[in-house]
């Protein structure tokens, strides 16, 4: 019985470990090998060279990183602002939170299609603008002629789609902060600004860190929304990886893209871990 008790936790964990080894770890290692494999069967940087020389690579890299910088900071600010506001109100708090988190239940492709239906030539936006007389004829918002508009449309759709995730992490984090800190700040004369930057945000740092890490990794992987709204006009790293795999059938370059994404994710995560660290003795 005692023996069984010792083994039991491992037995219970085993299925998930097996699952991860087969469906996560092994494809991951394989991707690594595919990326470095030459056509002749040897190993080298052949695929990376090919990726680097591709016209779309730097465009995709630029788009992905710009999206990251456009989406994630704004989401964080919005989420902090929304959760602080939500804390202040008493009535309908639950209802408002449910409405705010609806996008969490929508797949990213569906989200992309929703925004496509708004912004397309015969979409809701054009209909409204036409009826209000802002425009003479339906405008083609999402075309390569308006790269900035296209970028903005994808950014807005991304912000809308995944804000709820950040919001939930921040709200959960705020709830963990005892209200006495807030009250102490009030009593000792801190104004709203000082209270936010000297008390609330520093105490919220662990939650902000998790939210930023999660959201940045997901933002780097942006795919369905960019494809649904931008088509081929707004290439991102993930859509390029998909292109090379599905259309050019070059698994090597696709894997190289995947590894670039991995590297960016690791860099951003390490960055957050370092810059938002809690001093060792304050932990």
């Amino acid at each position: 019985m005692k023996e069984l008790n010792k083994v039991m936790p491992y037995l219970l964990l085993a299925p998930s470990v097996v699952f991860l080894v087969f469906f996560f770890f092994s494809p991951f290692v394989e991707t690594f090998f595919i990326a470095f494999k030459n056509a002749e069967g040897g190993y080298g940087l052949h695929s990376f060279r090919k990726m680097y020389d591709d016209l779309n690579f730097f465009v995709a890299l630029k788009n992905t990183i710009f999206l990251l910088f456009a989406v994630v900071p704004l989401q964080l600010v919005l989420a902090v602002w929304m959760s602080l506001t939500l804390r202040k109100i008493k009535k309908f708090r639950g209802a408002i939170l449910y409405i705010w988190t609806i996008p969490l239940g929508i797949s990213d492709l569906a989200a992309g299609i929703i925004w496509l239906s708004i912004l397309t030539e015969r979409g809701y936006l054009n209909t409204i603008f036409l009826n209000l007389g802002f425009i003479e004829k339906p405008e083609l918002w999402l075309s390569y002629e308006h790269p900035l508009l296209l970028f903005a449309a994808v950014a807005i759709a991304e912000i809308w789609r995944s804000l709820a995730l950040v919001l939930l992490i921040i709200i959960a984090g705020l709830q963990l902060i005892p209200k006495e800190y807030d009250e102490a700040a009030d009593v000792f004369g801190a104004g709203a600004f000082r209270k936010l930057f000297r008390v609330t945000l520093p105490l919220l740092k662990p939650s902000i860190q998790s939210a930023l890490i999660l959201r940045s990794i997901l933002a780097l992987e942006v795919f369905a929304v960019a494809v649904a709204i931008g088509g081929t006009n707004l290439p991102v790293l993930a859509s390029e990886a998909y292109n090379w795999m599905a259309n050019y059938l070059d698994y090597g370059v696709a894997s190289a893209y995947a590894l670039v994404l991995l590297a960016l994710s690791i860099i951003s995560t390490l960055g957050y871990l370092f810059f938002l660290r809690t001093p060792a003795d304050a932990a």
């Binding site: 005892p178 006495e180 800190y181 009593v187 004369g189 801190a190 520093p202 105490l203 304050a282």
Partner: peptide, 28 residues
Amino acid sequence: PKDRHLAMVFQNYAVFPHMTVADNISFG
């Protein structure tokens, strides 16, 4: 509260964990 010229000691201290003792004392 901040305009009432008072100070308060809380039951569970409410000493700010992210500040040193000196920063806590000098907060007000």
